[in-house]
């Protein structure tokens, strides 16, 4: 365990030196900041825009980080031959794979945490700088239509930003307001799906080059996202032919291919709670916020899936010759 941790921490140290990571992170933060501007263009439901874009950015950029950082981790060790010294040490190869996986996961999760804090900060700051809130905060109403200025506009904004940032950090530890209601749960589920994708990135990089690994991981991500659509497509094929038994020729092949593909790739849509965050049913306790239930079966599914993929990665890596 201590050796896995040592490898994981070293992997994290290596990953944070990857420039791609910072480009992706900065881009994600820009998008979140920009979502506030975009929402002003909308004539209704501006919060929906900010939340949609923010959650989407966290998920997608988390994915990109896990791919672009992950595919190089094992490859670099082989290319630079540092793996020689690691393998000759008294550790198992699976300890190495697990160490790399957890190191990458730590990197991805630290980034998700940063993006989430920024996202919550944007939401709280948006809330605090609504014209009515600002006016209430910096003017005192003396009578109908009579106001007295009690605060500075700019000072208020700077203050609001820091308060929002503080609340944003607190939100990561369970604090919430109606605007951020159950968003942390959505992020949690996103993180779960990223754990699966990260495992795939590691799996592919145990036997192929970075470019191919990236392509494979992207394909897995796409098929995983479209899992349910592909299943529906297969069902439609069967329905058209009048039953699975009636399928012939290429249709039969397509059907079974789709069936296999949907059953072995992860169904990432199970872990997608974006829609619930904006349109979900009302919470039973607090009827003004949408409830995002955590489906523990799905969480168990995610964990077992990761374990399975990592076992396969270890199997491949254990038999691998390093030239």
């Amino acid at each position: 365990m201590g050796k896995i941790l040592a490898i994981a921490l070293n992997t994290f140290k290596e990953a944070v030196r990857n420039k791609v990571l910072y480009f992706l992170l900065i881009f994600a933060l820009l998008i979140m900041g920009f979502s506030s501007v975009i929402s002003d263009l909308s004539i209704a439901a501006p919060e929906k825009m900010v939340i949609d874009l923010g959650l989407g950015a966290i998920d997608f950029f988390g994915f990109l980080i896990s791919v672009f950082v992950g595919i190089y981790l094992i490859y670099n060790e082989m290319e630079r031959k540092t793996i020689y010294t690691i393998v000759s040490k008294p550790i198992d190869r699976q300890q190495f794979i697990l160490g790399k996986y957890f190191g990458l996961l730590i990197t991805v999760y630290v980034n998700i945490a940063i993006m989430s804090i920024f996202f919550f900060t944007v939401l709280y700051f948006r809330e605090a700088t609504q014209p009515d809130v600002v006016t209430k905060a910096i003017f005192k109403e003396l009578g109908p239509g009579k106001f007295e200025s009690v605060g500075n506009y700019y000072v208020y904004h700077v203050q609001a930003f820091f308060i929002a940032a503080g609340k944003g950090i607190a939100t990561l530890f369970g604090y919430w307001e109606p605007i951020t209601h159950h968003l942390l749960r959505v992020v949690f589920m996103s993180a779960m799906s990223l754990a699966i994708i990260t495992a795939f990135a590691i799996l592919y990089s145990t036997f192929s080059t970075p470019t191919l690994s990236a392509v494979f991981t992207f394909l897995t991500f796409i098929i995983g996202n479209l899992c349910e659509d592909i299943l529906r497509y297969a069902d439609k094929l069967a329905q058209k032919a009048g039953g699975v038994a009636q399928l012939v020729g290429p249709d039969k092949m397509k059907y079974w291919f789709a069936m296999v593909a949907t059953h072995i790739t992860p169904n990432l849509a199970l872990l997608d709670k974006f829609s619930d965050a904006v349109h979900g049913p009302w919470d039973a306790k607090t009827p003004t916020i949408h409830s995002v239930p955590i489906d523990w079966v799905v969480v168990v599914y995610g964990i077992t899936y990761v374990a399975g993929v990592l076992s396969l990665a270890c199997l491949i890596f254990n038999r691998r010759n390093f030239k």
């Binding site: 070293n10 140290k13 290596e14 030196r17 630079r80 031959k81 540092t82 020689y84 010294t85 000759s88 040490k89 008294p90 550790i91 198992d92």
Partner: peptide, 21 residues
């Protein structure tokens, strides 16, 4: 064998180590 590996030190050819450490 891990107990044997514990007793071996190895320096590969043209080693390249983690240069950020």
């Amino acid at each position: 064998d891990k107990s044997v590996k514990q007793q071996i030190g190895f320096l590969p050819e043209n080693p390249f180590f983690y240069d950020y450490l």
